[in-house]
Design a protein around this nucleic acid. Sequence first.
DNA 1: GATTGGCTATAACGTGACATTATAGCTGAC
DNA 2: GTCAGCTATAATGTCACGTTATAGCCAATC
Lengths: 286, 286
Amino acid sequence: MDYDWLFAFAVFADHLSFTRAARQLHISQPALHVQVRKLSEAVGRPLYRRSGRGLVLTAEGSRMAAFGREVEERGRAVLEEVRGQALSGPVVLASGQGALLYLLGPAIRRFPRRTWPLRLLAMAGPDAVQAVRDARAHLAVAAIDGPVDDLACARLRSVGQRAVVPSSHRLARRRSLRPADLDGEALVVAPAGSPHRRMLSQLLDGAGCAWTVAVEATGWEPMLHFARLRLGIAVVNDFCPAPRGTVALPLEGAPRVDYQLVERPGLRTRGVDLLRSLIVGIARPT
Amino acid sequence: MDYDWLFAFAVFADHLSFTRAARQLHISQPALHVQVRKLSEAVGRPLYRRSGRGLVLTAEGSRMAAFGREVEERGRAVLEEVRGQALSGPVVLASGQGALLYLLGPAIRRFPRRTWPLRLLAMAGPDAVQAVRDARAHLAVAAIDGPVDDLACARLRSVGQRAVVPSSHRLARRRSLRPADLDGEALVVAPAGSPHRRMLSQLLDGAGCAWTVAVEATGWEPMLHFARLRLGIAVVNDFCPAPRGTVALPLEGAPRVDYQLVERPGLRTRGVDLLRSLIVGIARPT
DNA sequence: GATTGGCTATAACGTGACATTATAGCTGAC
DNA sequence: GTCAGCTATAATGTCACGTTATAGCCAATC
C-alpha cells in the first residue's frame, strides 16, 4: 500500500467525485482514478460504489479515509515538531447546534483562537460523532443515546426536557407537566428520524397521547421561535431559556439525555488538550 | 515527504547501518542511502550523524523513526481490520528485569499468548520507557522517578527498600534499619549511574555513612545471590523475597519508588488493551 | 425515446524518479 | 602504511506514474 494513494483517497472521500478531488490535488482525473483503484486492489476490498448518479463510500472506504486523514495530520504535526515550528493546524470541534449555543459558548470564548485557530463544524449530533470517527474533527460534543465504544467519551452534562407553552395557555400555571397533559396539543417538534423526535413520540405515544405536528423545525432556536409565535408547544432541552411570553415547564417522565464529549484516542495536541479541558471544566459543573 | 522514505528510515534506525538495513529491506545500500537523504532534506534537519566508527540518530531522527514505526504498525492493523483478518502483530511489553520477575508474572501467565503473540523486551527501566517512546514497545513497566509527560502513565505499585543481611549478621535481629546503621558496611549495589545506585548513595551519603562497594551487580536476582553468599548487604526493592539464610529489613528513610505502566497514547489494539487490564488488575491491588 | 451534459473508467504514450552496479571517500584497526 | 568495512556519490537503464484522448455510463430534458 502506497501512502500517497491513501492520502489521495482521503481527498476523494471528501468530495466523492474524482473530477473535483483531482482538481484539488492538482493532478488529472484519470491519475487519481488509477491511484484509488490501486489502493482498492492493495486493500483487497472495494472502497466505494455507485449510488444513482453519485458515489458513496463502503464501510472499508470510510475506515481507510479516516486513517488517511489521521496519518496525514499526524505527519504534519510531527514535521512541525521536529522543525521547531508551532503546530499550525486548526483545532476542529464538531457539535450539534444546541450544544454550540447553550453549552460551549464560554469554552469557545475563552479558547485562544489567536494561538490555535479553531474550526467549528455545526451539524446534527450523530453526524458530529461520525465526524470524529472519520478524523474530520478532533472533538465532538453531542447528546448520545447508545454507547460509543470505538471512541473515548466523557459525560459533560445531563439534561431533561421542558415544554415551552405560551403564558396565556391553560397549562402555563402548572409547575410541571406529565406526558398525558399534552393530549390533544399541537407540538413544535424536531424532524422525523431525529433522536429528539423519536424520544418524544415514544414518550407521548406510550402515555396514550393524541398529538399533532404543528411545525417541524431543526434546532432549538427555531423551535423556541415557533413556540413564541404560539404555533404550538415546543419540547426542548432544559438548558434552553424560555422566550418572552412563554413559560418552560419540566416534562416528567422524559428520559434524561447525556451530552458527551467524544474524542478519538491518540493524537495528543496541545491545542486539543486545552480545548478539551476548557469544555470539561466549564460545561461540567452545571 | 514520501512515507516509503520514512519506513525505510525506521529500519535504518533499528540497525544504525545502511548496509544491514538495506539487506533487510531487500534493496541496495545506495538506494537506501538516497531515501534517507531525501527524507532528511524533506524534514530539513539531519537525522543522524557519525560518531566514531558508527552512526547515531539525532533527536529529530529518533522522533521520525518512532513516527515511522507507529504509522507502519497502525497501517498494518487497519489493513487487517478492513480485511476482516485477526490482528496479527505481537503485543510488545518492555520491562525492567525486576518488574518482570516480581510484578508481571501473573499477568503474563494469564495473557492468551496463542491469540496474541507476546514479545517481552527485558531491559533497564529507563530504556523500557524509551522503547515505548520510540514505538518499539506498546507498554512498559518500570520504576520511574521524574514525571513523563509525553506518555500516558498509570501507577501500579509503590515499593520501599529493604536491606538483605545474612541471618548471622549483627543487624539481623533488628526489625528495621536506618541509613546510619549501614555505616562501615560493604554493600551489593547496582552499577554506577543507575537510578537505584543514585538513590542509595544519596540516602547513605546524606546520613554520613561510610560504605564501600562489595559487588556491583545488575538486576535484583544477582544482587540477592551475592547477598546470600555473604559478600555484602544488598539493598533491594521490598518485593524481592529474602533468600534462604538471610533476612530482609525495611530501610527507613528510603524514598518509595513507583512502578508505573507507561503507554503511548493512541493505537488501541485489543491485545494491548487486554494486557494493560491484566497488568493493572493484578499488579495494583498490592 | 433520442439527445445532451457530466461524470467515471480505460487506453496509449512519454517522461522522470528510483533502483541497480561501479567506485570513490572516509575511518579505525592491525 | 595498509587493509577491511563501511558510507557516500556517479552513471545508467527501466518501470511506474502522469498526461491527453476517448469510450462508457447514467440521469435529466425536450
